[in-house]
Design a protein around this nucleic acid. Structure first.
Length: 301
DNA sequence: TTGCAGGGGTCAA
DNA sequence: TTGACCCCTGCA
């Protein structure tokens, strides 16, 4: 008879089953708003409606059974050291939603995006992924990140399938432009190569950004080739380096113009408006609004 | 099957 | 402020 045990972390009760960790009665964790909202590029939906992702060289499968969250291909140690933080399980999203739902529009947005969590991605992976996102489709970004990962040659087997860890900066530098070309990144190839080189030159780069004010961190990141304000703010937000940024892409711009500003304005105007409106919660508010605006095509005709 | 427009942005003129 | 940029995807 297999011994079953359980443990708790941050108020969560986690049960160790034969082939999974089960987080009983989890609040504010839904799969689609979290994995298919465009914040991360390495999560694929399975036929059984679960999601499988590659994070920090590990493959994990995440599903729901009622209100329980089911994590497969992992263990207590990784949950405590990786997944608790990665899935942002220490943050009180119910309290945050109350603060963000400042009016009818945002009430609808947080309701629609209920269960969304901001994943804490590896800084370097977020940097490269969002450099690739410029003038690009979500599906294509996923395909490029996938082919870039093959370069790592670091394979992970799960259920008869082979996955690849995201490459290290050293691997990308070693590949050079010619080695990166088969990934079909187009004109972004040199951005990836040059920005990786720059990243490698600064020790503990993310730590340095953590010590800066948010606006200074954005300026610092914009020194990288292929990184403008939008990409810089996405990298900061989705690596949990700064939560009070407000990345303005075409969807946010259209949504803010339609719902709040009531006229066409510049991206920098929208940015200032959003930061003023949402303050310290602007990053998470932006993500609820983005998910809501994109699904409902707000501002598209 | 083919051709064309456009994409979650950045850069340089 | 505006056009070019790789290449894939969706659509007619």
């Amino acid at each position: 008879m297999l011994k079953r045990s359980s443990f708790s972390l941050g108020g969560l009760c986690i049960r160790e089953e034969e082939d999974a960790l089960v987080i009983a009665d989890i609040q504010e964790f839904e799969l689609e708003p979290t994995f298919a909202c465009g914040q991360a590029f390495r999560w694929r939906k399975e036929c059984d409606d679960t999601y499988t992702g590659v994070v920090r060289g590990k493959v994990i499968n995440v599903g729901k059974r009622g209100n329980d969250l089911i994590l497969k291909n992992t263990n207590r140690h990784d949950f405590q050291n990786i997944w608790y933080e990665y899935f942002d399980l220490g943050r009180d999203y119910q309290a945050l939603k109350k603060q963000i739902a400042i009016d009818d529009h945002m009430q609808k947005a947080v309701l629609y995006g209920s269960g969304m969590r901001i994943l804490k991605q590896e800084f370097f992976e977020a940097l490269i992924s969002f450099i690739l996102s410029g003038n690009n489709h979500f599906q294509r970004i996923m395909n490029i990140v996938e082919s870039l990962s093959v370069l790592s040659e670091q394979t992970i087997r799960y259920q008869e399938r082979i996955f690849y860890a995201f490459p290290t900066p050293a691997t990308i530098v070693q590949c050079g432009i010619s080695g990166l070309t088969p990934c079909k990144m187009g004109y972004r190839t040199k951005y990836v190569a040059n920005s990786t080189q720059r990243y490698q030159q600064v020790e503990h780069f993310q730590k340095k950004l953590l010590a800066l004010e948010s606006e200074d961190a954005v300026t610092e990141l914009m020194q990288f080739e292929g990184v403008g304000r939008k990409v810089a703010e996405c990298v900061l937000l989705f690596s949990h380096t700064k939560m009070n940024v407000f990345p303005v892409d075409v969807w946010i711009k259209r949504a803010m113009e339609t719902l709040y500003i009531k006229k066409e304005v510049s991206a920098s105007y929208v940015h200032a408006y959003g930061k003023e409106l949402f303050g310290e919660n602007s990053g998470i508010a932006q993500q609820y609004l983005f998910y809501y605006a994109r699904k409902h095509k707000i501002g598209c005709g």
